[in-house]
Amino acid sequence: MSARVRIAFLHGLLRPEEKLLLEACARRGVDVQPVHVDELVLDLGAAAPPAVFDGCDLVLDRGLSASKSAVLLACLETWGLLCVNSSHVVAVCSDKVLTNRVLAAAGIPMPRALLAFEPAAARGALEAFGYPVVLKPPHGSWGRLLAKVNDADAAEALLEHKSVLGSHQHAIVYAQEYVEKGGYDVRVFVIGDQVLCAIVRHSPHWITNTARGAKTARYEVTPELSSLCGAAARALGGGLLAMDVFVDAEGRLLLNEVNHSMEFRNSIAPTGVDIPGRMVDYLIERAAARAAARGAAAPPAVATQAAAATSAARRTTAAPSSATRGADAGHAT
């Protein structure tokens, strides 16, 4: 390992989160090798990954496309590169069906959900399930293409549309019970298997999405919430994760979704936590652990204490985009 931690920073478009992470790396003396995912070509028969990864202790995935990330990370891992998050975590968390199964198998409480493959089978299942119900594409984020279905007529139309108009993936029906959650959900930031902080997102809309006007505030992490999210992280494989949690009418915590490429720009101020700084600290720890396991010299501590985690959004004539490409745009049912 090199004297300083060197991170391959996989990216596409740079959102405010990526810039905040780059700034946190700079403050901590971490070398960054930027790698634009769309500019990469892998020789799958090669004995080593592309030269751009030479000397890198760790690969941080901040690409926008979950499908590209999952494939790319899986390849890089076969060459022995340490990836955060791992290809397994990305593959599971970017698929709501797999997320549900992995977490259910670990005993994590979640909203009830069904999987079906044909409209006729799905209609029958939804009748038994009871309305309202939420249809979600197995893949996707930022609240896109979620549908709250209130009755059988709407279900029949939506299922036909998904079957006829959508790609083959939309023919797979993933349905989740509609949870009355009192107009809010909780986004929990998890590093490794430890809860870092949490925010509450209030919205009059059933999708609690900051891009739709949800208001955020700091949320006090309870032992129960910490236990739930820690267990979920361990079941998934750990890493840098953002979890969306409902509190149902009976006060039970239900884990709705887990995001593998967390967005946090709107969560730093309300929590007062240097989220990107703590993420980079985790990367340094992972790189050191990897080096120790290999018997190499661990990189020196490079903790330059971050003064302030957040840089104010620069808005002159041209302003960094904040709303349409994420913005902690977690969604809820």
Binding site: H11, G12, L14, K19, R314, T316, A318, A319, P320, S321
Partner: peptide
């Protein structure tokens, strides 16, 4: 429209045009 870009802008960063609100890379 004239587009003034902050000095520390990086390649592949997303900006929004203040005039037409288009998202630009």
């Amino acid at each position: 429209a004239p587009l003034h870009v902050p000095a520390n802008t990086l390649a592949h960063e997303v900006l929004v045009c203040a005039d037409c609100q288009s998202e630009l890379e």
